[in-house]
């Protein structure tokens, strides 16, 4: 329920922040005559007082209408979202899949070999993902796998194989965090009494890890998924631009640079809703897995 005031705050801040900004959506290298400028402003209702514009925006929003785009004048913000959001969502899903599979795997392995050379090797490898900006890793992998080996397309989002490199680049960043959280979480439960008891009862190390260390050890990872979802979103700004993917992240950056007020506001609202939604989901998952939380 708190979501609504939060959203309202986001909308209000974004709306007024953008109008404070220098540079309008109609600036162009070719000068716009005063008549034309007036005509354009009247067309988009920008000639009305700011407060009026604000309430009109809220009114339209209540009806689910995010308004027209200024830079792509024949498209509406709703259409832009419908066009590009599925792409970003899919990219994010691939990224999450990579982050979880690589991260959990590496983290579990490292925990099993805690404080031994294997542990250090795995964790160092996993950490490379958070030590190189995605705008280096991306072009570098493209150079190797697309230009030198010719396995993948350089960019785009048409063939199914176009998902592999971007998904990997986006995911590897979060894989490092997941690996670290899992290693530490599982590593700690490995030291707990119940785990030792399980081993003493004759379970194999693998069985004991799986049954008694994984579930409690994975909780921090799940708590991390909330911020990770937000991060995947921003991460996709870079990945989409590196791989020329027609996703929403690029739209957002271009709109912010191009002063496309309605698109920026619409996308900020969408992002806020998404993050709220993810945090709720994470709370729910945590409650499901953690008996202590469930009781309270």
């Amino acid at each position: 329920m708190e979501a609504i005031p939060t959203l309202l705050a986001v909308i209000t801040i974004t709306f007024f922040l953008l109008r404070l900004a220098p540079g309008g959506p109609f600036a162009d290298e070719r000068d716009l005559s005063p008549q034309a400028q007036a005509a354009m402003e009247a067309h988009y209702g920008l000639d009305q007082p700011l407060v009026m514009q604000y309430f009109r925006y809220l009114g339209n929003l209540a009806r689910g209408d995010l308004g027209p785009s200024f830079r792509y004048p024949t498209r509406t913000v709703n259409e832009i979202i419908v066009d590009h959001f599925p792409v970003s969502l899919e990219l994010g899903a691939w990224g999450l899949l990579v982050a979880l599979s690589l991260g959990l795997g590496a983290g579990l392995l490292a925990a099993a070999y805690r404080q031994r050379p294997q542990d250090h090797t795995i964790m160092t490898l996993a950490m490379v993902g958070i030590c190189l900006p995605t705008f280096v890793l991306g072009p570098f992998l493209v150079y190797i796998f697309s230009l030198q080996l010719g396995w993948f397309n350089v960019g785009g989002w048409s063939h199914w194989s176009d998902r592999i490199l971007p998904g990997f680049v986006l995911g590897s960043f979060f894989a490092a965090y997941v690996a670290r959280l899992t290693r530490n979480g599982v590593g700690e439960s490995v030291l707990m009494d119940y785990y030792r008891t399980a081993l003493a009862k004759g379970l194999s190390k693998r069985q004991a890890l799986w049954k008694h260390a994984l579930k409690p050890g994975i909780l921090p990872t799940i708590a991390f998924l909330g911020p990770a979802a937000a991060g995947l979103l921003t991460g996709s700004f870079v990945v989409e631009s590196v791989f020329n993917i027609p996703g929403l992240g690029q739209q957002f950056i271009n709109a912010a640079f191009g002063r496309d007020f309605t698109v920026v506001t619409g996308l900020v609202i969408l992002y806020a809703v998404l993050i709220l939604f993810f945090n709720l989901t994470v709370d729910f998952l945590q409650a499901l897995l953690d008996p202590k939380l469930r009781e309270s």
Binding site: V10, L17, L18, A21, F237, A256, N279
Partner: peptide, 19 residues
Amino acid sequence: DLLYALPFTVFLILLMVIF
């Protein structure tokens, strides 16, 4: 908790672009 739910990087970009 509420602030956690704000898309901060998005705001960072806006701030950097705007000011």
